[in-house]
Amino acid sequence: MTVKFFATLKLKLGVASVEVDAEPGLSVGQAIKRAEQSTGRSFWSDIFDKQGKTFPGGMVLLDGANIAHQNGVDTPVGDAETISVFPPAGGG
C-alpha cells in the first residue's frame, strides 16, 4: 500500500510517498512505522501524541476515512490502498 505525506511532512521527508507491505492484520500505526523505516526518518512524534492520538488539526486518512473516527493507530488497514498523513496546519 501507499503512504502519502503532505505539507510540512513531505518537506521534512523529501518524498511525497512510500510503498509499504501490508499483510492481513496490519494496523495503520504499524504501516506508518514501516513508512518511517522506508524513509529513514522518524516522524511519528510529528503526527501523534504520546498516547498515539493524532495531534489536533492533523489528519491520518485511510482511503479518505479519518482514523480518529475509527480505532486510531490500531485501525486495521484491511484492503485499503492509501494512508494519507497530514500534520496540523491551521494558520490563516
Binding site: T54, F55, P56, G57, M59, N66, A68, P88
Partner: peptide
C-alpha cells in the same frame, strides 16, 4: 473532517 479532538490544543 479533522477528528473529534481537533480543537484540544489550546496553545496551537
Amino acid at each position: 473532517v479533522f477528528g473529534p479532538g481537533f480543537d484540544e490544543r489550546a496553545d496551537e
